[in-house]
Design a protein around this nucleic acid. Structure first.
Lengths: 118, 118
DNA sequence: ACTTAATATGCGGCAAGCCATATGTTTTGG
DNA sequence: CCAAAACATATGGCTTGCCGCATATTAAGT
């Protein structure tokens, strides 16, 4: 489902404030769980969750459950040009994500990523 | 109006098939007039015109009247990251614009750009 | 001045998208 | 087994966006 991601489809996926910020934030941080995104964006949990579901359905994000948390990251099969695009945008719009990044850092009780021990 | 083009705003501008294709086509060709775009995309003239107006209002495109034709090009003050983004997308999605490019080349009576002689 | 070509805009009408609220599911801890 | 936390989804309403069609505008040619 991911390979026929046309430019238009990608633009539609990102053409909404919450989805754009979440995607860029995840592109920068690597992986974030729903509660972190909820805190960083200061939006309701259902709202965050619905937009994440949409990004997952488009093939932009992938999710991974770990205990009670669900982590989202960029989909591994995302075309290279999308990666490049996100990198370019991130580099040129650092301050745009400023508030979100601050709230992320100040967040209390951030779940810890598992140090996967088999 | 152009400098506070946020990522979200740019995505919204391009989140529609006609606008996405026109913008990429113009990014590739440098400058195109309404009748060329109408032929290349095989869409009604009012539809093309309205989307062009929207792209102009956003600050993505600039127009220039020459005789009976109006030429559109990327806005000169477009942020660098948007240029880079368009370049990246163009490079990775050549075939996506294939039909439009073919129709452009096959088009009869294409208006000639003025060789500006002062 | 009149006609034609190129382009722009106004106006409903319909479809898509977004949101808040409420509720369902899964996991963890006791 | 029960309660609480993290997350997902369903529903109804409202807003935004897109389209087709008709009409207005501007410029060129005769």
């Amino acid at each position: 489902m991911v390979e026929h991601l046309t430019p238009t489809m990608v633009f539609k996926c990102l053409a909404e404030e919450t989805r754009a910020r979440m995607t860029l934030l995840i592109a920068r941080e690597g992986e974030l769980c729903v509660c972190e995104l909820t805190a960083a964006l200061e939006q309701s949990q259902p709202k965050i969750s619905r937009h994440l579901a949409q990004l997952r359905a488009c093939g932009v994000l992938e999710d991974r459950r770990q205990g009670q948390w669900v982590y989202y990251r960029l989909h591994p099969h995302l075309p290279d040009w999308v990666h490049e695009m996100l990198k370019t945008i991130l580099a040129a719009n650092r301050n745009w994500l400023g508030p979100e990044l601050q709230r992320l850092e100040r967040m209390r009780n951030r779940p810890e990523r598992a140090t996967i021990c088999a």
